[in-house]
Design a protein around this nucleic acid. Structure first.
Lengths: 253, 253
DNA sequence: AAAAAACCTGTCAAATCTGACAGGGACCGA
DNA sequence: TCGGTCCCTGTCAGATTTGACAGGTTTTTT
């Protein structure tokens, strides 16, 4: 058997194995936060944030088509970043999307002429997030993708840190997929809360009349929302719409 | 950070990390076989087999409610084992189900008076599978569970071997879930091939008339199979049946 | 303040689904 | 050989969905 040339120390590898195993059982947002805190013991950082969704759609529609899971990032930071569309000027994000590999904030800054004056770097410095990493899982158009940022005053910039992220982040992404089942698709198809609501009841086999009694609205109103959901999902009828909604996690059994 | 007291050597931990990462992308049976062969480099064995399905249902209905994925086990062995219902007399399987921990064949044999004369052990010896391990993931009634057997002339019986399985098997189980999406549920609900077939077309939004044209059967025949599928799935109508079928992986989008 | 989006409701006809009656043949396992 | 299972088909009535016309109010965003 070929020997490994991995930069991961033994204790890191064992911690990551346990994290990978425990990520399988993760199904709620608090559990997901717990995984991020577990990761912090292997690779210290002050805060993390994950942008998730359909990367292709995010390119078209920007932040409106993306979700965020915030684990300790300063809310003002996130607000300014999103409102100004800074993902379009983020050198670290760009270099990650281009290379597919973990990107260190400082390393990227030094790589680009004028990197120090970049608006995102200035925002980083304003909030004391002088260093950190970006890494994620980027899938095809229409699939769930993620980009994580782990930031702080300083971080380990070595190949070991990159290796930690390369092993941890795919499992964190799988866990996040389970936690967020459906939210990406609701965003993608632009379904309104009423449309999702009626789909849930249709999925349970209720007739439009039964749903109207349950929701206290007219049968006509229910049919109106069902028809809108069918159209937005590109379905042929309500059965087809339910199939799509269940498959995409918009509604659960 | 607390130091680990894991029996896993560094190189094993790294190999398992890569196995765990690659298991995420596994979605076909050949890829799954590839993962098993990868595992063999960490923990040598001659052959493996996985019994999967709903453990509760398997207790009720035996082998009829269980699937098998065979990676090198002698077919005659598997045939004799299944036909004689040897899972009910398998001390290794029993000890695994009781403890939830990896069980070594020889260790179990020595633990039980008369273990050497056990029919499964005799079958093992007849086929040269003198040693090996059993380990799996057992979930609640109605959920996908697995039990893997890794066997050969001899295997590593140390705590290291058990630790390898404890880290590898959960990821193999998740991979197998993806590979086998739905087969467990078809078994569980007792759906016939025609019932699954019409569900696929209904799921795509086709009317019974359209499906009858596609399949070259009468519309009455299609409705008959749809109604049977609805009843077997315990659904209120075809829309509800499709929701269940998609959720359980019986049909895919 | 204005525009857009979301939500709500009525009526009617045609299409489709559901339930219930009727009947049959082929194949497999005990 | 017999019983069970799977698959196939016809007819009919009532229930539900679908599509298309008509109209409205409230909330949110710019």
């Amino acid at each position: 058997m070929a020997t490994h040339t991995s930069p991961l120390p033994h204790s890191d590898a064992l911690s990551l194995l346990e994290l990978a195993r425990d990520a399988i059982a993760c199904s709620t947002e608090p559990e997901f936060h717990g995984l991020i805190h577990r990761l912090r013991r292997v690779l210290p950082f002050d805060c993390a944030v994950c942008a998730w969704g359909d990367v292709g759609l995010a390119m078209e529609k920007g932040a409106a088509a993306t979700g965020l899971v915030d684990v300790g990032y300063p809310p003002e930071y996130v607000d300014v970043y999103v409102r100004n569309g800074y993902q379009n000027r983020d050198l670290v994000l760009r270099d990650f999307l281009v290379t597919g590999e973990p990107q260190n904030f400082v390393t990227v800054e030094k790589r680009h002429p004028g990197g120090r004056r970049n608006v995102v770097r200035r925002l980083d410095r304003d909030h004391g997030l002088l260093d950190g990493w970006a890494y994620g899982v980027v899938n095809a158009y229409g699939e769930f993708s993620s980009v994580f940022f782990f930031a702080g005053r300083q971080t380990d910039r070595s190949a070991r840190a990159a290796a930690v992220l390369e092993h941890a982040v795919p499992h964190l992404t799988e866990a996040l997929k389970r936690v967020l089942r459906g939210r990406a698709a609701v965003l993608r198809y632009g379904l309104t809360p009423c449309e999702v609501e009626v789909l849930k009841w249709v999925k349970d086999g209720k007739s439009s009349w039964e749903i109207s009694v349950i929701l206290g609205k007219s049968e006509r109103c229910v049919n109106f929302h069902v028809a809108n959901a069918v159209r937005k999902l590109g379905a042929a009828n309500r059965t087809h719409a339910v199939a799509i909604a269940v498959a995409k996690g918009i509604v659960d059994l």
